[in-house]
């Protein structure tokens, strides 16, 4: 196996991809941010336009790359490119958005091969202030498509929560062996 591997973080703008990568990376994450031109969709000053990048090294000298996709839909042409060769995907859903279930469908549809092979974990954020849809509702959407994935509520500002997501992803990967 090559010595460089990748975990992809994807999700809508403001869902916490950059924060998740920063929680794990041992280098200051490389962030390609620009002024947010879509403040109707999400009101933050800047947003990722190409990718976020972080990494941590392994004992044997290998490296895990942590790559975040740009959040705005107009950059979705890059998602597939960034996902190529990834070990797995952490999908971050922002429950405060108008239709989080539609967001789930969009991303799972885009990364369907990963979802069907159990190489994805779904993290739902902001559930403490936005309790609907419930975690079960996300599970129902996936079950309707015959997909069973971990759907976990998470606050990615907490490193432990990000580790929990990676743990669930690794556990699934181990079961594919």
């Amino acid at each position: 196996m090559s010595s460089e591997h990748k975990i992809l973080f994807t999700g809508t703008m403001g869902a916490g991809k950059t924060t998740s990568i920063a929680a794990l990376s041992e280098i200051p994450p490389v962030v390609t941010e620009a002024l947010n031109s879509d403040r109707l969709a999400y009101d933050k000053a800047t947003t990722t336009v190409a990718l976020d990048y972080g990494e941590f090294t392994l004992e044997e000298g290998g490296k895990i790359q942590l790559v975040g996709t740009p959040g705005q839909m107009r950059f979705d042409f890059m998602w597939g490119v960034l996902a190529r060769g990834a070990l797995g995907i952490v999908l971050l859903i922002d429950n405060s958005r108008p239709d989080p279930l539609a967001d789930l469908r969009t991303y799972v549809g885009h990364f369907e091969a990963f979802a069907r092979n159990g190489r994805m974990v779904v993290a739902v954020g902001r559930t403490e202030t936005h309790m609907r849809p419930a975690i079960d509702d996300f599970g129902d959407v996936l079950a309707n498509d015959g997909i069973l994935l971990p759907v976990l509520s998470a606050d990615v500002r907490r490193r432990d929560d990000v580790l929990m997501l990676v743990n669930a992803l690794l556990s699934q990967l181990e079961m594919t062996l």
Binding site: M1, H5, F56, I64, L163, L170, E174
Partner: peptide
Amino acid sequence: ADAGLRRLLTTVRRRLGL
């Protein structure tokens, strides 16, 4: 490849303290 992936996953776990 399976054995390699298994080793990799073990190493990642150890590195992250999982």
